[in-house]
Simulated assay, not measured.
Amino acid sequence: MHTKSLEYLIRRPKIEISKPPLLIMFHGYGSNEQDLFSFAEELPDELLIISARAPLSMGFGSYAWYTIHFDATTSDKFSDLPEARSALSTIDLFIEELKAEYEINEEKIFLLGFSQGTILSMAYALNHPDKIKKVIALSGYINEDLIEKPFEKERFKALDFFVSHGTVDQVIPVEWARKTEPFLNKLKIKNEYHEYPVGHGVAPQNFFDLQRWIKERCK
């Protein structure tokens, strides 16, 4: 399916529910909307699940939210910032379109990102804490260049993050991810941080932990 802004897959709630919570998935660089959607069947029945396709086509079913400079050695040079900011604007439009299309509980919108999708999910929630309360951030990091300043801690009171990373991630070093927890703690944002002995991917235990985290917050 598609809105005016992005193509997406949908899993409707498996139970009759008025105004279901919404979970939106944002895949990583070079992937597509099928990737994270493989989790959908194992997530809580009451969720309306949307898996979005990034706007930039790389050919052969691969898509990206923005260009990555793989030869960069520091996180601040890794991302094409104008493209990433454009992607955040597209995501904002996409979320507004979904709210208009589906009757959802706007107090329970989850973003679930992987890698590039995580970087954007965390930046979006920090820029729009009035719209997003919960973020599942897999194998990514906080890119402060994408976050509007100054930080108004009062606005962040309802935010809640699940953050995880592989200790042997060969794409995004775990050292970049380890800055996330202190960053969120400084802003007094509720968060749960996990590491798993894997590369750039989601270990089974990681999935069970995020599944539990989501279930607890769907109640």
Rank of each mutant, 00 (worst) to 15 (best):
W65V: 03
A137F: 06
A137E: 09
G166V: 10
K19Q: 13
G113I: 04
F183N: 02
I50A: 02
G61L: 11
Q170L: 12
I24Y: 01
I189P: 08
D169V: 12
Y66E: 00
N185K: 15
S121Q: 03
Y66F: 13
S139W: 00
E107F: 01
K4R: 12
H165W: 04
G201Y: 00
K215V: 11
I91G: 05
T73K: 15
W65G: 01
L210F: 15
T180H: 00
A203G: 07
D130P: 06
G28Y: 05
Y8L: 11
R155V: 05
V168W: 03
K131T: 11
H27C: 10
L56V: 14
T118M: 03
F207D: 04
S38I: 13
L48F: 09
A52V: 12
I15C: 10
S164Q: 09
H2D: 13
P82K: 15
F207P: 07
G30N: 07
A54N: 07
T74S: 13
E216D: 13
M122S: 12
F60V: 08
E154H: 09
A203V: 01
P21A: 08
E195Y: 07
E16G: 09
A54S: 12
L184K: 02
R53Y: 05
A87Q: 11
Y66T: 05
Q116K: 03
D71M: 11
P182I: 02
K219Y: 08
L9T: 06
E101V: 10
A123I: 00
F114H: 04
E148A: 13
S5I: 13
I50Y: 00
H200C: 06
K134P: 03
A158S: 14
L159A: 05
P13F: 04
L43D: 06
T73A: 06
A72H: 06
A158K: 14
F114P: 00
W213F: 14
E97A: 11
I91R: 02
G199N: 09
E175V: 08
L120C: 08
R178E: 15
S18N: 14
K153G: 05
S79W: 01
F37L: 10
G140T: 02
L126I: 07
E46D: 11
L184T: 08
E101C: 08
H2Q: 15
Y124Q: 05
L93P: 05
K134W: 09
